[in-house]
Design a protein around this nucleic acid. Sequence first.
DNA 1: AAATCGTGGAT
DNA 2: TATCCAAGATT
Length: 353
Amino acid sequence: MRDSQQAADLLTWYDRHARVLPWRVSPSDLRSGVVPDPYRVWLSEIMLQQTTVAAVKKYYERFTYLWPTVGDLAAAGDADVMGEWAGLGYYARARNLLKCARVVVHDYDGRFPDTCKELLKLPGIGPYTASAISSIAFDQAETVVDGNVERVISRLFNIRTPLPASKPEITKIAQTFTPSARPGDYAQAIMDLGATICTPKSPTCGICPWRSPCQAHDLGTQAELPLKTRKAPKPTRLGIAYVARRSDGAWLLERRPDKGLLGGMLAWPNSEWNEAPVDSPPLDAEWCLLSAEARHTFTHFHLELKIKLANISVESEPERGTFVPPEEFAPSQLPSVMQKVFNLARDAFDDWS
DNA sequence: AAATCGTGGAT
DNA sequence: TATCCAAGATT
């Protein structure tokens, strides 16, 4: 079809400008016969969901160092994986990552399926990720539609229907461009194009391989596309976090339930987060309120956390949570909001003693 | 099917 | 400071 020339133009651009990424097999290596590792493609795609390349790099290196194969990851402990994911956000991804690894090992003999249909059955793999794995790891002609593709296609066709309503139309158009040859490189090329040239603000149309067919560039509307429906303003919630240090140096921590915010993560015991939180310490003690608060913004609300400290004797029994000895505790295992709390609490304990 | 689910960098 | 946004999935 006519669109094959556009795909070819993009692949030519990609051959020269493909970014070097830890999880990527370069076009030249691919031609030399290097075969992508589906485990690493899958791992990188899960980490990259709603997350920047810069933020993912260290985590990807660490995970592949600790768990080089899907079998290694499947055999890992839940707490170890959650602790290594800490700071990356969207923690359901980490829970589903482990679930998926174990399903692949036990139900698929340790080999990822190669079709979208089968991949979509696995936990944590949705339409985008299934297409990405199928095309990049298995050379199947599937179409990826991520935020980059939404933006590129919206501009190419000057689509003025706001997202997400325009997504079906965008998907349909994107499918007509996907080539049967080198679909994996094409998928990565169109995402690279969106990430490096067809950027959200100030796109560099002057060097774009798709400038000539681009309707938005023709009309000068590229900077205002894609249109998006307004998001609701974020309310502010209040809460109290309790940091207890036992005389032997152990810290009182709590494993959050698998469902909901920060699910499955280690955390300081805390009150509910709402308009008027109730003081609910995890054990009876002389709690000292810090003057400093931890402020943090989540996806859909702001949080202002008061912090209470207590020194605890070794014979006391908490009503909830577990004392973790200092040699087993690293603040890097905590989600970012809880790391903020720890940093403020540690400074206060240091002043205290 | 609208809400939920993190974080940090850029503007 | 406020808002946007980044290789979305789940319920």
